[in-house]
Simulated scan of single mutants.
Amino acid sequence: MNGSLTHLGALADPAAFTGPVDLQNTPDETALAMLERMALIRRTEEQIAEMDQAGEVNCPCHYAIGQEATAVGVAQHLRPTDRGFGAHRSHSHYLASGGSVDKLMAEVLGRDTGASRGMGGSMHLYGADTGFAGSVPIVAGTVPLAVGAGLAAKLDGSGDVGVAYFGDGACEEGVVHESLNLAAVMRLPVLFVVENNLYSSHLDIHLRQPSDRVARFAESHGIVTHVVDGNDVVEVARVAGELIGRARAGEGPGFIEAVTYRWRGHVGPDENIDVGLRRSAEEVAAWKKRDPIARLRAALETRGLAAADIDGRLDAAEQAAKAAREKAYDAPWPPQSALLDHVYAGQGDRS
């Protein structure tokens, strides 16, 4: 592969992790809640993708279908006073934090009831009441903001953490390395979460980096790291709990590399199997067998949970996504008078 080193090993092989996840000591209710949240993210994005294909969405949408476990696993240990920051593929982070599916759907359609009052679209989400401080499409742009949130939390002694969600491509931006260094030197309560889906836009990681394992960057700064199967929500939750606990206790930052894969393309609802690189229909099909939702469901069935209980959670997610779509269609557009409301600080707070 162009002289590149493969250090992820089996984690980058979809055939290696297709069975039920290990529930370990996870209570039934916790596992069911994680299943429902992942399903809500998936069903919501599938609804948005349908709207996208129908030409009803007028903003670019980046889908995290197939990657739901990472956001949901991390969110198990976050609280509303923490500050999470995402990039352009952040529907999952917003919803995992407890963000409103109604507000997400309305925002994608540009409606006044949206998460950003219809002013931001898919890539500019805001959910301060749930601890999601914002997403932007600038690659790695929010990583230093999460470090700043960690610094503020340390100075005020709140015990809160800053969380930066970003992809393997963002690791090639200089600001990520500056942020890792500052967080390490100042022992800041920050969790860096890299969703390594092996592609930056359309470019395979083996064409961009000498190794496919990006945790090496954090390790060079002495930051505690975990490299995990990003499609195993239980494992993600376990390591996130450990690292967030350390951060809250004043023991410094942590870094999770969650190896995963997006089923859809870089942007838009199609699968991008014609980009001329390693991504192919066969590769996408192989990764779909590592479905985080199906693997958690299989684990719950193996444990002996009734199919009715499991299906009830999945049906609830389905209905919530469909209802949010219909509600968004009926929501009002922002008034023309609101065009400049949020251009300058302190102006036009209509909330």
Results as ranks from 00 to 15, higher is better:
A71Q: 03
T30G: 00
L95F: 08
A258W: 12
P335F: 04
A323G: 04
A215C: 05
Y165F: 15
V136N: 13
V176D: 11
Q347W: 15
A338R: 13
E219C: 04
L125Y: 09
R264A: 11
A152E: 14
T18V: 11
P20E: 07
A218S: 11
G127A: 06
E68K: 09
S211V: 07
E172C: 04
T113H: 11
M105A: 12
A294C: 04
S100T: 05
L296K: 08
S97A: 14
M186Q: 14
T26E: 13
L23V: 02
G162R: 10
A33H: 10
T70V: 15
V147E: 06
A33C: 07
G73L: 05
S351N: 14
H221A: 01
L203P: 01
L8R: 13
L40S: 04
Y344M: 09
G120N: 01
A306S: 12
V101H: 08
G121E: 01
L95R: 05
N231A: 05
T6I: 01
P210N: 14
L277V: 05
V72R: 04
R262F: 05
C61M: 10
A184F: 06
E282C: 10
F17I: 01
L300P: 00
A323S: 13
I41T: 06
R89H: 15
R262V: 01
L188E: 09
D204Y: 14
T130M: 13
Q53V: 01
V163M: 10
T260A: 14
N197S: 11
P144H: 08
V233A: 10
A153T: 03
A286I: 00
G114K: 02
E257P: 04
R187T: 01
L207S: 07
V228D: 07
S179A: 15
S97K: 13
Y94I: 00
R290P: 05
H206I: 00
Q209K: 15
D22L: 08
A31T: 03
T70Q: 11
D274C: 06
L109H: 04
H124A: 06
S158Y: 14
G250I: 01
V214D: 09
D232F: 08
G268D: 07
V228I: 08
G86T: 04
S280E: 10
G98R: 07
H93D: 08
G86D: 02
G276A: 05
G348R: 10
I273Y: 02
H124Y: 12
A96P: 03
G134C: 09
F132P: 03
A298G: 06
I310A: 04
R325I: 00
K103V: 00
L104M: 13
Y344C: 00
V72Y: 07
L182A: 09
D204V: 00
R208L: 13
Y165N: 05
G114Q: 08
L203N: 13
D102H: 15
P80C: 05
R303I: 02
A75Q: 06
S135D: 03
A321S: 12
L5P: 00
